[in-house]
Write a protein that binds this DNA or RNA. Structure first.
Length: 533
RNA sequence: GCCGCGGUAGUAUAGCCCGGCCAAGUAUGCGGGCCUUUCGAGCCCGUGACCCGGGUUCAAAUCCCGGCCGCGGCACCA
């Protein structure tokens, strides 16, 4: 077969086994999992996308969807991807100073890079300029009604008295706003929309409002500005100024597109293409920003933002989920308006495949029971075991497990595995030897060495169990998130675990994957977080 | 309540625009087997879905209408 040229081989396969070729084709297709084409790409010189988070908190898996998809599209079309911080509400959604940095970090962790970065609170003069332009074109006015008064007009589909002001009057009032003449709630800039709109929230929506920054200083600009653009104004303007061509955002923004369209029309701009994405949920964790904030607050600092019960990217990172898995999941979920609940099983499976080959394996025992094994030969090959860290990846090295020189060898096995010993009379200590039950006392079990032959164990159907030598062990505390609770399992683990550093992912044989979080070398104790089976 | 967007196996997704090649593909889960010094990985076999009802058509997951369900929106938040 190999004597044939590649072309001849292909020909042969095509003739004799066309279905094979089809299979290969499909396999390739699945690996690539290309995104659907973006609409109207040919209309634009270059594709430009953006991710525009509010830096009032850390970002979570739900935010990763628009971020990653926007980035991927920009890459696919060799365009540009922009990061824009939308921090124009120092009062209700006050920016969190560390969030700017944290969001950048989290995006980088996801493998996202951006060529341009903007912070809206540093662009205030730009928004004022566009506001003036809009006002002078008659597209907006300064409303001095009380909030309730305006609501009445709105619900009756009537214009408020200020709506009829001339552009020059409006500009004057706007300048007065900027000069800090009005207090909060006393003046807003409203965009003129269709007064007959069915949805009242659409009607003459607020583009800029007064926020008393002497009371609510902005973390970046302090009290320098008192007139702040709303989301719809700032985002709408910026998408134009930054020449964004394709907006991918959550479907909660659907109505915002309609609102912003009024500004675009008034200024003679063309609105970018919009794709509304469904929400992403992650099974068994808290995703909502507000819920996380609540939990954080009520814990009084005991719970941190990377707590494994949260769906923040930091939590996922802490739980040992690799960023490629998140990327894979989001590409799988794709570009559509349907919500998706990501199952932890799915994440675990993808993650396991990714890390299995590069993850050292050590033995740990929970619910330990002491087993005294009599009759283990005293030759060093029986008392000093050289065990590889991975059965098929020798590059991970090995450790030496020392069993001491005394007559008996003592090991811990788990209470569950003890049942096999009691029931079957024999078990195999993995990578060591077979043992047979001899007796049982209050605090330990007695057994006899029964040879190292694996074939015997196989033939007889002995359960093969992991174990930890009593002569050299480390205590392990394993934190396991379960239904929004954290269980801490205590057990023993081979002392060689101390060789690994904090952050290292390991597999505890027959237990699951873990990530080391703390090493207390003097105390012979480690703390780890459970990742998945 | 009103408006918008959706509904393919337990979960996620392909197919829907352009009806037949779909008695519906893939991944995960679950069951079984092989392999393996793990209950992991890998390989093989099996399991399981087009929300409901009408209509159009020779033919509907795909088009049309109605219903149901889910999500989102209805701020001087983003």
């Amino acid at each position: 077969m190999n004597a044939l040229t590649l072309e001849e081989q292909h020909k042969l396969v095509r003739e004799k086994f066309p279905e094979l070729l089809e299979e290969v084709r499909q396999l390739k297709h699945r690996e690539e999992k290309a995104l659907p084409p973006l609409p109207n790409v040919s209309k634009y010189r270059v594709v430009r996308t953006r991710f525009a988070p509010n830096p009032d908190f850390y970002i979570h898996l739900g935010n990763a969807r628009p971020a990653l998809l926007s980035y991927e599209y920009a890459r696919e079309y060799r365009g540009a991807f922009i990061l824009r911080f939308e921090d124009t509400d120092p009062r209700i959604k006050k920016p969190l100073p560390e969030a700017y940095r944290a969001i950048r970090e989290d995006l980088k962790w996801l493998g996202i890079s951006w060529s341009e970065e903007y912070v809206q609170s540093m662009r205030m003069e730009l928004y004022y300029g566009i506001a003036r332009e809009l006002i002078s074109r008659g597209g907006a006015y300064v409303d001095l009604c009380k909030r309730d008064e305006f609501r009445k007009f709105k619900l009756e589909r009537r214009a408020c008295p200020h709506r009829s002001q001339s552009p020059s009057e409006a500009l004057e009032l706007f300048d007065r706003m900027l000069s800090n003449y009005y207090g909060e709630g006393e003046a807003v800039v409203r965009v003129k929309t269709d007064l007959t709109s069915e949805d009242p929230s659409l009607i003459d929506w607020v583009a800029l409002r007064v926020i008393d920054t002497s009371k609510y200083p902005h973390p970046l600009t302090g009290d320098r500005y008192v007139v702040w653009p709303t989301y719809n104004f700032a985002a709408g303007v910026d998408d134009k100024l930054m020449e964004v061509t394709h907006i991918l955002r959550g479907k909660e923004h659907a109505l915002n597109t309609v609102k912003q369209l009024y500004v675009y029309r008034a200024l003679g701009w063309e609105y970018p293409e919009v794709i509304n994405l469904g929400r992403l949920k992650l099974e068994g964790v808290i995703l909502s920003k507000s819920r996380i904030k609540e939990v954080l607050k009520s814990s009084g600092g005991a719970i941190e933002v990377d707590d494994p019960r949260f769906g923040t990217l930091r939590s996922l990172r802490r739980r040992g989920i690799s960023p490629e898995v998140i990327r894979e999941i989001i590409m799988e979920v794709g570009v559509k308006g349907t919500d998706a609940t990501i199952s932890w099983e799915n994440i675990a499976s993808l993650n396991r495949k990714r890390i299995d080959l590069s993850t050292p394996r050590v033995m740990a025992v929970f619910n330990p029971v002491r087993v005294v094994v009599r009759g283990v030969p005293k030759e060093s090959s029986y008392r000093s075991l050289k065990l590889g860290y991975h059965p098929s990846n020798a590059s991970l090295g090995f450790r030496v497990v020392n069993l001491g020189a005394s007559d008996d060898v003592e090991v811990f096995i788990s209470r569950e595995d003890l049942d096999y010993l009691l029931k079957d009379g024999s078990i195999r200590l993995m990578e060591f030897c077979n043992i047979a039950l001899e007796g049982r006392s209050r605090d330990h079990v007695e057994a006899r060495y029964a040879g190292t032959d694996l074939e015997v164990a196989r033939r007889e159907g002995f359960k093969i169990v992991q174990w930890v030598p009593v002569s050299g062990y480390t205590v392990i505390e394993l934190v396991k998130p379960e239904n929004l609770k954290l269980r801490v399992l205590r057990g023993v683990v081979e002392e060689s675990i101390m060789e690994f550093g904090v952050g290292r992912v390991l597999q505890l044989v027959r237990v699951g994957f873990i990530k080391l979080e703390r090493l207390y070398k003097e105390k012979g104790r480690v703390r780890a977080i459970y990742i998945h089976d």
